[in-house]
Design a protein around this nucleic acid. Structure first.
Length: 435
DNA sequence: TATCCACAGGAAATCAGGGTGT
DNA sequence: ACACCCTGATTTCCTGTGGATA
């Protein structure tokens, strides 16, 4: 490993680039493995393409297409299929060119911002500020804009990850307004397309919205291994040079992804990462060992990025769990312990507020949802009901990430004092017997 | 078998920080 | 300057609960 202060050896960057250019070429066009890439052929999605094409075709004649929903787990090609159809629709020889507005409700996450996003996408000149105005004003402005700018045409509103929006407050209201847009429009028509990966989310949907949106829906089933193979073959043809992939490689990637509920995005990511690792190693071909390495690296990258992106308070919660398992490896960690240790270490960092137990409980759930820890609710009888917390991944990875966070580095060797009392130790011994 | 612990987790309120038009 | 808007993070208030213990 290179160290910053080792001046006897310096990385020769010129030589590196020269070798890189001379070395074996793996990729022909690596963009083809991108999740956003829309291929000419979408294998195993004929039924859905036909369905969507039929629903949306009347837009070419100026009629309002029905609103509908698309269901399917992540990586089943929902977004890609919609984009594919929209592209084809735009290529048709028709007077009417529909507008397509994509909104990822995970990114554009509040009612206000959704309205503003739609407005700003259509309007070139006047933009709506990111905050400050009342919602109903924006809504009226949007209606005016649609009538003038999208005149005599159709506006498709695609709401990706719509389930996230519905769970938020005000989410149902904005959806209701959007489904009823047509009633308030004079010169143009609109159609709402919702994309969700949870079937259940219909339960939390306002029945009025369901009636205008949910009656029509298209299901995207998960891909099986052989279908994933077809997808990968199709993309690999474009992405890689000839003969760089070992013949068992694509079946391997497909099999791995098939286990993860047939997620095509994962399969593509895996293939790409394997290719990149082979490229970095200056290998002429991509072999299965690169797939294995890629799998590990993807997993680790994901966790590290996730933790780095967490708010500082959540990182401190994680640090609390880390410190307990580091200094008291056989201690059974419960919510109360985390609260105590958090209170202790947050005092070591200036400007960090004390949190309530309620808030900490939510942070613990978030970490559990991300797969970093497990937090199982268990009743300890007379000792109350609480969560039992354990790390779900190697503590070395946690340590590595926490070391990279400026404000936390300094406290990683702080031994929690609160857990040293006999009272706590005694109680914990009883817990051990109860589990 | 009633009790009671130490929380879980839902709903609503509050606060601070970004903004608006008048 | 003022009244008001939207958002995200957090607090406040609250009701619910599994099962060891008395």
């Amino acid at each position: 490993m290179l160290k910053n202060h080792d001046y006897n050896y310096q990385f020769n960057i010129d030589k590196f680039y020269k070798n890189y250019l001379k070395g074996p070429k793996i990729f022909n066009n690596r963009n083809a493995l991108d999740p956003s890439y829309i291929p000419e052929i979408l294998p195993h999605r004929d039924v859905q393409i036909k369905d969507i094409a039929e629903k949306t075709a009347c837009a070419l004649l100026g009629d309002a297409p029905p609103s509908f929903l698309c269901y399917g787990q992540t990586g089943t090609g929902k977004t890609a299929t919609i984009r594919y159809v929209s592209q084809k629709l735009a290529q048709q020889n028709s007077e009417i060119k529909p507008w397509w507005i994509y909104i990822n409700c995970n990114v554009v996450s509040t009612p206000y911002r959704i309205l503003a996003h739609i407005y700003n996408t259509i309007s070139r000149e006047e933009k709506i500020p990111p905050t400050g105005l009342p919602k109903d004003i924006i809504f009226k402005k949007l209606l005016g804009l649609l009538d003038s700018k999208v005149k005599d045409s159709i506006c498709f509103l695609v709401l990706d990850e719509i389930d996230i929006l519905v769970d938020k407050k005000g989410g149902n209201e904005i959806l209701y307004d959007l489904t009823r847009l047509n009633e308030n429009l004079d010169n143009c028509k609109s159609s709402l397309i919702g994309i969700s990966n949870k079937l259940k989310f219909r339960n939390s949907l306002d029945p009025r919205i369901l009636s205008s949106l949910g009656e029509e829906h298209i299901v995207f089933h998960s891909y099986d291994a052989s279908e994933l193979r077809d997808i990968l073959n199709e993309r690999a043809r474009i992405a890689f040079h000839e003969h760089v992939l070992k013949e068992d490689l694509i079946p391997l990637c497909a099999a791995v992804a098939a286990k993860e509920h047939g997620d095509a995005r994962k399969a593509l990511q895996l293939l790409r990462k394997a290719g990149e690792l082979a490229e970095r190693a200056q290998s002429k071909i991509v072999t299965s060992e690169y797939v294995e390495k890629a799998q590990e690296e993807i997993e680790r990258d994901y966790i590290m990025e996730f933790i780095k992106g967490l708010p500082l308070q959540a990182q401190l919660i994680l640090t609390s769990i880390y410190l307990i398992s580091k200094f008291n490896p056989d201690h059974i960690i419960i919510s109360g312990d985390i609260y105590d240790v958090h209170s202790e270490i947050r005092g070591l960092i200036p400007g960090i507020r004390q949190l309530t137990k309620r808030r900490i409980s939510d942070y613990i759930n978030e970490l559990a949802l991300a797969g970093i820890i497990t937090a199982d609710v268990k009743s300890m009888g007379h000792y109350g009901r609480t969560k039992i917390i354990k790390f779900d991944i190697g503590i070395d990875i946690i340590e590595k990430v926490l070391c990279e966070i400026d404000k936390i580095q300094g406290i990683l060797n702080h031994k929690p004092i609160l857990l040293q009392t006999d009272k706590v130790k005694l109680k914990n011994n009883i817990f051990k017997k109860l589990i």
